[in-house]
Lab assay of single mutants.
Amino acid sequence: NITNLCPFDEVFNATRFASVYAWNRKRISNCVADYSVLYNLAPFFTFKCYGVSPTKLNDLCFTNVYADSFVIRGDEVRQIAPGQTGNIADYNYKLPDDFTGCVIAWNSNKLDSKVSGNYNYLYRLFRKSNLKPFERDISTEIYQAGNKPCNGVAGFNCYFPLRSYSFRPTYGVGHQPYRVVVLSFELLHAPATVCGPKKST
Rank of each mutant, 00 (worst) to 15 (best):
E141A: 11
T55R: 13
A105Y: 13
V181P: 00
S36P: 07
Y39K: 15
C150R: 01
N157I: 02
S164H: 10
E10M: 09
S129M: 10
P191I: 09
G172M: 00
R73F: 00
Y66I: 14
A81R: 08
V52W: 08
S19Q: 04
V173W: 10
L122Y: 10
R136W: 05
L122S: 13
P161E: 04
G51M: 06
P54Q: 14
D97L: 13
E135H: 08
G174M: 06
G196I: 11
I80P: 01
D137A: 03
V37Y: 13
H189I: 09
Y66R: 07
T100N: 11
S164N: 09
L111V: 14
D9T: 12
V153M: 14
G101T: 02
Y171V: 02
F12E: 04
E76P: 02
N87P: 12
Y21G: 01
L5P: 15
I104Y: 14
C102H: 03
S36E: 11
G196D: 11
N87F: 15
V103E: 00
S108K: 01
V37M: 14
V20E: 00
S53A: 12
K128S: 13
G174L: 06
S129G: 14
K48R: 14
S113V: 02
L38C: 06
N58V: 08
V153N: 14
T55Y: 13
V180A: 03
P177E: 00
V181N: 02
N1Q: 12
L5K: 14
N109E: 02
F8R: 04
S36I: 06
F185E: 05
G101D: 00
E76V: 03
N120W: 09
L122R: 13
A22F: 09
P43G: 11
S166G: 15
A14C: 08
P82N: 03
L162V: 12
A22Q: 10
C102N: 03
R179Q: 00
P191V: 11
A145M: 06
I88Y: 01
T100A: 07
L57C: 06
L95C: 04
K26L: 10
E186N: 14
C61D: 07
Y123H: 11
P169G: 04
F185H: 06
A18L: 05
T55N: 14
F156H: 09
A89F: 03
Q79E: 09
S113I: 01
C158R: 03
L131E: 00
V77H: 04
D137W: 04
P43L: 08
G146Q: 02
L183T: 02
Y93R: 02
L57V: 07
D9M: 13
P177M: 01
G172F: 01
P54K: 15
Y119F: 07
